[in-house]
Amino acid sequence: MSDSDLDLALRMADTADAITLARFRAADLRVDRKPDRTPVTDADTAVEEALRALVTAERPGDAVLGEEEGGTVDGAARGWVLDPIDGTKNFSRGVPVWATLIGLTEHGTATVGVVSAPALGRRWWAAPGTGAWTRDAAGTRRIAVSGVSDLADAYVSTTDSRGLGLRWERLGAAVWETRAFGDFWQHCLVAEGAIDLAVDAGASPWDLAALVPLLREAGGRLTSLSGDEGFTGGDGLSSNGALHEAALHHLTP
């Protein structure tokens, strides 16, 4: 990883923002259904095409995995993991909580992450040794996870509790407060210390790869619900680190 990789990821986010903002709440937005019944818009496909073109032009030897066009980064020395719009349901309904997720992996480890949510006026990014950062209307600042160390004091979010069943009930009974901020946003809120835990019952690699560096550089942790490190476990738990094992105790099937 070099500084230029982070620079490229941020420029990719700029490209994505220009496309998504132009299509957000557009009267002629096209929304289709994929085989798994999840929505996909013309903005999703346009963003992924544009980001793949940038990788091809500037890092022609790098692998690419994207939500819309597939691919793989398995076994690749370097790979880009792309979610053109995380929160497509929100995007398609005019809700501003959605983002483009851009992750760089090296030998299977996520090293650079950029999360850009232009309708919220927010962006988060991280790279090894640089710390985790965010930008909003107040400016740019470095972020860090919370110092909450007792599960009874924890503020917890999930994307959809229906996929967790009794596990969510057990965790919810053990914590101070629960909400459903959902998708990328809840993990970013953990990274900046606004909440303490975030749970995804189901998550693909493109949902998590960009978030791993952000949580790590902010002092937190992201694993599967079984405690496996990385972004390929099929689900996710992010935390401030101090609460991770206690949360896993309630979430492990």
Results as ranks from 00 to 15, higher is better:
D3C: 13
L6H: 03
D7A: 14
L10W: 13
M12S: 05
D14Q: 04
T15Y: 03
A16I: 01
A22F: 10
A26M: 00
A26K: 05
L29H: 07
L29M: 04
K34E: 05
T38K: 08
P39A: 06
V40Q: 10
V40Y: 11
D42F: 10
V47D: 07
E49Q: 11
A53E: 12
G61I: 03
D62R: 12
A63S: 09
E67K: 01
D83K: 05
D86T: 07
N90T: 09
I102D: 15
G108P: 15
T109S: 12
V114H: 09
V114A: 02
A119V: 04
W124D: 07
A132E: 12
R135C: 09
G139V: 03
R141L: 05
R141G: 10
R141P: 03
R142P: 00
S146W: 11
V148A: 07
S149M: 12
D150M: 14
D150W: 14
D153R: 10
A154F: 00
T158P: 03
S161D: 14
R162A: 13
G165S: 14
G165Y: 13
R167W: 15
R167K: 14
W168C: 14
E169C: 06
G172Q: 12
A174K: 04
F184W: 10
L189I: 05
V190R: 14
V190T: 15
G202I: 11
G202E: 09
G202C: 06
P205N: 04
L211D: 06
P213R: 00
L214E: 02
A218R: 11
G219N: 02
R221A: 11
S226T: 11
D228L: 08
G233L: 07
G234H: 00
S239F: 02
N240P: 15
H244I: 04
E245D: 12
A246S: 03
H249N: 03
